[in-house]
Simulated scan of single mutants.
Amino acid sequence: MTDRDQETFAEYRNLLFAVAYRILGTAADAEDVVQDAWFKWSAADRSAVTDPKAYLARIVSNLAMDRLRSVQHKRETYVGPWLPEPILTTGDTADAVAGADSVSLAMLVVLETLSPLERSVFVLKEVFDFSYAEIAVAVERSEAAVRQAALRARKHVHARRPRFEEDSATKQQATERFLSAATGGDINALMELLAPDVTLWTDGGGKVRQALRPIVGAGTVAAWFAGLARPRTYEGVEISEMTVSVLPVNGGPGIVFTGAGRVIAVITLDLDEHGRVVAVHNIANPDKLGAIAGGAAHDVGPHR
């Protein structure tokens, strides 16, 4: 392998991870897929490759779809709600509104309801603006089949996640206000921030104690968070010894709880067009906090 071949792979590595992560919803699996793509790239007859980006996108898309199919049963039998694995993201991701929303936990939850093919086609088309012809090559389907999958996926996603331009400053302010109210146990302040039909999703994966079903309604969600401020300890860590930070998580502000040398939980908010919190995603399964604990920020914007 020449230096140029290595440079080519490095040039597209962020793109490959960004595609794989959106298809799979887990950073660890996405990293594995990118590593497997490197092995395939290393072993390929690169002299016959006329478009390295398209070639690598095909490898990653197919590897990611195969892995997604293999893990679907585990997700279906998961203890409690299955949420994506959060990652730290760069400012470049947050600056691109479309890119930030496409990697948000709320969007990844919606993408989880698509088939592996629909999810791959949606990501390549809607996020990275690949042509239908390019996608057909990448996922090894006819262009007609790709167009049909794209239409199904687009309708499905837009029905569950109506599009509107989310202001990053508004979300930052809402997250900070939510954090202040939740850590202070202020139910009234929380009620002002929450939409009436807000839903709280908690993911403990059976490893830590969390709600096993979604919690719905402003009063119930506010009471749940206010209750967290009362105990002296959480998961064996003194509340007074925890550090709470607002960091760039999945393209927007996220609340990261740390203590006793580990990440304890990550919370992200989803807002409606009125700036009210319509969904809260709380990931506390320690198996899903490695990417946050590692501290590396990913540039997963829709750069091609």
Rank of each mutant, 00 (worst) to 15 (best):
P116T: 14
P116G: 14
P116M: 14
L117H: 04
E118A: 07
E118G: 15
R119I: 06
S120L: 07
V121W: 11
V121A: 11
F122S: 06
F122K: 04
F122R: 06
F122W: 11
V123P: 11
V123R: 11
K125Y: 10
K125I: 08
K125S: 11
K125Q: 09
E126D: 08
E126V: 11
E126N: 13
V127W: 01
V127D: 00
V127K: 02
F128M: 12
F128T: 10
D129Q: 06
D129T: 02
D129S: 07
Y132K: 01
A133M: 03
A133Y: 08
E134P: 00
E134F: 00
E134C: 00
A136M: 02
A136N: 00
V137W: 03
V139M: 09
E140T: 08
R141P: 06
S142L: 07
S142H: 08
S142I: 03
S142Y: 11
E143R: 10
R147I: 08
R147C: 06
A150E: 11
L151F: 11
L151T: 14
L151C: 03
L151I: 09
R152I: 14
K155T: 14
K155M: 15
H156C: 12
V157P: 01
H158L: 13
A159H: 13
R160T: 09
R160P: 15
R160W: 12
R160V: 13
R161P: 01
R161W: 04
R161E: 04
R161V: 01
P162F: 09
R163Q: 03
R163S: 05
E165A: 14
E165G: 12
E166Y: 04
A169R: 10
T170I: 10
Q172P: 02
Q172I: 06
A174Q: 15
A174Y: 10
T175A: 10
E176Y: 03
F178V: 04
F178G: 04
L179D: 13
A181V: 12
A181T: 10
A181D: 09
A182I: 03
G185H: 05
D186A: 13
D186S: 07
I187C: 06
A189V: 00
L190T: 10
L190W: 09
E192L: 06
A195C: 03
D197A: 09
D197S: 05
V198H: 00
V198C: 00
W201I: 03
W201F: 02
W201Y: 01
W201R: 00
T202C: 05
T202Y: 01
T202F: 01
T202V: 04
D203M: 04
G204V: 03
G204T: 01
G204R: 02
G204F: 04
